[in-house]
Design a protein around this nucleic acid. Sequence first.
DNA 1: GCCCTTTGTTTCGCATATCGAACCGGTGTT
DNA 2: AACACCGGTTCGATATGCGAAACAAAGGGC
Lengths: 249, 249
Amino acid sequence: MLKTLDNALHLLRYFTRERPQWGVRELAREMNISHPVVYRMLATFERHGFLRQDEQTKKYELGITFLEYGAILRDHLSITQIIYPVMKRLAETTGESVILTWLDGMEGICLEMAESTQRVKYAMSVGSRTLLYAGASNKVIMAYLPPHVQEAIIAKGLKPKTDRTILDKDELLRDLARIRSEGWAYSVGEYTENVFGIAVPLFAYDKRVVASLTIAGPDYRMPADAVPAALRALKEAQQEIQTLLQRIQ
Amino acid sequence: MLKTLDNALHLLRYFTRERPQWGVRELAREMNISHPVVYRMLATFERHGFLRQDEQTKKYELGITFLEYGAILRDHLSITQIIYPVMKRLAETTGESVILTWLDGMEGICLEMAESTQRVKYAMSVGSRTLLYAGASNKVIMAYLPPHVQEAIIAKGLKPKTDRTILDKDELLRDLARIRSEGWAYSVGEYTENVFGIAVPLFAYDKRVVASLTIAGPDYRMPADAVPAALRALKEAQQEIQTLLQRIQ
DNA sequence: GCCCTTTGTTTCGCATATCGAACCGGTGTT
DNA sequence: AACACCGGTTCGATATGCGAAACAAAGGGC
């Protein structure tokens, strides 16, 4: 393990949605290291386009090299290549957005999205991270994780995303057990206000849950009695993807 | 400048579309450095999710952390935040895909795209790089670059992207001069077969060209006589974006 | 006008993290 | 069974990063 590189990559973690810009000394104070060290890291990242320095403010922010590597990554991710056509078709038949959420550690990450063709639709950015304890797309993954991982996620703390987010540990575990027994999840406004989600899990060859497939949109377009039809289409897509995944692994 | 970090970031450059996977010794040979060094870099990147190791083949490939940073970047890039709604509307009125190409060094990079709502449409991935000497979206940027930069781009070599790509230096320079005098570019099948592009430049506060806005789609939907109407809509969007850009700079 | 503070950037001697030859255990081929 | 490759590890020589101090430039208060 390279300490210099390790420190540098750790530094990047400070560039977040909430705090996308940092001055040299500012960041050095935050990280409790000397500012020349931070400066050298920032300057080296900048040479490679991973960071860019604002000409006026002199502050540093993420650079477009990340977009570039993101594009390469998505290109060769055979998984999304295979799954996307199915997602697209599902988005067209249901008229709602379809989202592929991947399991990464104790979080979810939006790997791919097929947008609804309607004007009013749910959209989220590919690459954005989500917490696993709220919303159908996330809970359906969490429901199939081993108990000690579920415990670990809960132990990290349940913060409300909306006022419908389940914050009680026992209630959440009961909900997850129900989802696991039924094989799918449905939620409204748990992760994002006024947004419904219907989600099913996707499994790897070894039966471990690796992702979820979700139909999402504005809640008024999915009353409870419309769910069964959408679920049927979703389960068909799930089947299809599952057999495709078998083939490549 | 940190040499260790510099070397490590240089290593990432080897993960391309054409060659997205590398074994340790394989990459070490390619880079002419010892394999323990490469191993340490790969392993450290992996710890942070910038690379992942394929369980079966043990080879390394780009990791989803790049998607994550790409999402953060796009989120806070005030430029795309401001421009996207205009692009979206233009895509809806024209029915074709609209692309925002940003100038980065001597290349273009697709910063944002509003997809056509039609079934058959032109699509490219956000973050992908393009060469500046072919296609309307690129040439309209190159046309406004200072002559020495144009020379430098040509000096790097003109390779055909399709059989319509202009490869003659003088012909290209004449074409760029014409584009500059007219203020827009139109091309068919120069960068991608059977794809048309109509493009206008976007300028920073100091009149330097920074990007281009392009309407693109399958060539059969844009015969020469349909261009003026599309161009009118495109120029309106250009005006709008230009005034928006003035405001933030 | 001045002082004072803060900024990003550079320098340099000391401390240490990195390098690479050699090695390990494992796998597949001949 | 000998060989050739692989990913991963070890350890001493040495190239490299660290951080106190200083730099020039910019901005605020008076």
